[in-house]
Simulated assay, not measured.
Amino acid sequence: MFTGILAAAVTPLTADGSAVDAAGVQRQVDHIVGGGVHGLVPGGSTGEFTTLSLDERKQVTELYVEAAAGRVPVVAGTSALSTAETVELSVHAEKAGADAVMIVPPFYDALSFEELLAYYGAVSDAIDIPIMYYNIPSASGVRLTPEQLAQLARETAVASYKDTGGDYAWFSAVHQQHAADITALNGWDTLTFAALANGAKAGVWGTASVIPRLCADLYDAVAVRGDLEAGRALWAKIFPICRFLESHNYACGIKTGVELVGVGAGPTRLPVLPLAPRYREELRRLLVAAGAVEDRVAV
C-alpha cells in the first residue's frame, strides 16, 4: 500500500529529555513533508521507542498524525514485549488515525515461528489497518526464511515489511519470489540505491528525516524515471551520510543530523550519549558536501 520514501522519524524531546516536545514534532513533519518525502514512520527505533513510556508513545502517534494532517500516510510503531501492550498500542494508533502500524517481534527472548504467527495474529484480530513487519534480526533475534515471511503475510494482516537485516540476497528473494504475498520496503540505509534499482516500491529511511529533498529526488530518479545516471549522482552525495549513520548509534546520529540542518529535536534519552564532538563535526562536513547545510566554522 506504500510507495516512495517514508521517513523514520525521531521523537523530539524537551531540552532536558524529560518530555515529548509537541512543537518539535510539527517542525519535523513540516521539514520532512516539505522536502517531498512520501510518508512518516514515528515510534520506531529512530524514535527511541524503547525509552518512552506507554503514554508517551501514544502521544507521539497522536502528534505525528495531527501534524501530518492527511498530507502523507503515517505508520505508527507499536512494538512491545507483550502481546497485550502491542495490541493496546495498535488499537490506539488506529483510533488516532494512523494508516498502518509497524511491529518488530518482541526482543530479548526470540519467538518461535508458531509464537510469531500467534503474536501478529492477535494484533490482526484487534485492528483493521495493515501491519508492517519490522525485520531487524540483530535486535529481535528472529530470522525468518522468505517462505516464512510470506506465510506470515498470508495468515495475518501483515501486508508489508521493513527490511533492516542488511542481507540483500534475502531481501531480493522476498521481493522477487513473494511479491504477491508481501510488499518489500528497504530499511537498510546503505542498500537504498540497490533496493530501488531492484524495483522496491518503497523504503523506510531515517536519513530522509535529515535530508528529505535529496532522498525524495533519489526515489524519483531511480524508482520513477529509471534514470540511473542521475540516481548515481545523488547517491554519491547521500551514501557517505548513510554509512556514517550506520557506524554510530542511529537515533543519536539522526537527531544530530536534524539539529545540524536546522530542525533540532532535543537530546536522545539516556543511556544513549550525544555524539562526540569529532563525530558531530564529521557529520557536519558530510552534510556540507551534500549541499544540505552551508559551510561554516565547526560547531
Rank of each mutant, 00 (worst) to 15 (best):
Y133N: 03
G262I: 14
G17M: 08
A233T: 15
S45R: 12
S247I: 07
P73E: 07
V288R: 05
L40T: 10
A80P: 09
M102V: 15
A292T: 06
V272C: 03
G4L: 10
E85Y: 04
A15Y: 02
T61Y: 01
H248S: 06
E114H: 11
G266A: 11
L149H: 04
R213P: 01
V272M: 04
L260N: 03
V72I: 11
Y168V: 12
A98C: 09
A289Y: 06
T86C: 14
A67L: 09
T190H: 11
G24V: 15
V258E: 00
L52F: 05
Y279I: 00
F2D: 05
A194P: 10
P271E: 02
L234F: 08
C252A: 12
A139F: 13
D167R: 11
R213N: 03
E85A: 10
I254D: 03
Q148W: 06
Q176W: 12
A194Y: 09
L245T: 07
A202D: 01
H175I: 05
G36E: 00
H92F: 12
R143K: 11
E114K: 15
F2V: 03
A139N: 14
V263Y: 13
I254V: 15
A233V: 13
A153R: 10
K95M: 00
G203Y: 10
P105Y: 09
A292F: 01
L6Y: 09
E246D: 13
A292S: 12
D163W: 06
V87N: 06
F171I: 14
D30Y: 09
D99C: 06
V158M: 01
E88M: 08
E48F: 06
P240M: 12
S160W: 04
D220P: 02
P146L: 08
N135P: 05
I131G: 01
A126C: 03
G39Q: 10
I131P: 06
R243E: 04
A159Q: 13
T192K: 03
A179L: 07
Y134N: 02
S160I: 05
L52D: 12
Q177E: 10
V123T: 07
A221K: 09
A153K: 10
Y64M: 09
L260V: 00
I32S: 00
A69D: 08
P146R: 12
T156G: 05
L185T: 06
D99N: 14
L196F: 15
L228K: 07
G4Q: 08
V20T: 09
L116N: 08
E147T: 15
F193Y: 14
Y64V: 06
F193E: 04
V60N: 02
A9Q: 13
V25F: 04
M1D: 06
E88I: 01
G97R: 13
W188N: 05
K95G: 00
A251E: 09
G47Y: 07
